[in-house]
Amino acid sequence: MTHPIPPAVRLRDAVASRGGRPVLRGVDLTVQPGEVVALLGANGSGKSTTVKAVIGAVPLEQGALELFGVPYAGFRAWHRIGYVPQRTTAASGVPATVREVVSTGRLPQHRLLPFRRRDRAAVDRALAAVGMLERAGDGVADLSGGQQQRVLIARALVGTPDLLIMDEPMAGVDAASQQVLADTLRAEVARGAAVLLVLHELGPLEPLIDRAVVLRDGCVAHDGPPVPNTGLHALPGHDHVHPHADHTPPRLLA
């Protein structure tokens, strides 16, 4: 089977360890252009490490990584990738505004040149997409966890990436922000972006997901259509609310 367009991510037989402990024991992961892939698994199964291997933050001891058909060592088109790390906080030791944090996502475009009007416009668009434009001048430390997550997503969107990589975007995010996030993600998918999502659970993003890869102990345990979570869905009181159904937050999250 050959694809005319190379896959956005092709990770083959990835072996990696962190702090001397083997975490990935031969992971294969492919994300086709325009495809939404969820990476699932228990804590410690290697989800985050897989994503960090994809962006090159964790070196591979064995295996191969290609991004958009280019081997990692020669890959330079970083503007095609938007990354949302697992959030601890968007704040650091010195105050920074929402706009300043989001502007760092524009670095692949303006590089050493000054920040220009079109860069500023791109930041405004990304902030508007996550509903944070009116908070652009506020300090990130003053925002709630969900709002900080929206800022980090705007930072990834600001370069209009072809591949969006998100590590646990729903963790510790309030219902309103989850809704914004699902809407944003749907718009990105409609635009044609490929998405690689690390999730603890499918949750409200389930209708968007084309394929689920489940990791267990650093190995791929399942790679295929998302497994409907029948056990949970059958629970009394569970409403299966699709995020695009309306603008009230899903009851399960509310």
């Binding site: 962006i55 970083w78 990354y83």
Partner: peptide, 21 residues
């Protein structure tokens, strides 16, 4: 002169790497 670049690496090193810095 490199304020935006240095800000990015000190703010979030992993993210900065993905911007190709």
């Amino acid at each position: 002169g490199l304020r935006r670049q240095l800000f990015a690496i000190c703010q979030d090193e992993d993210f900065a790497r993905v911007t190709g810095l």
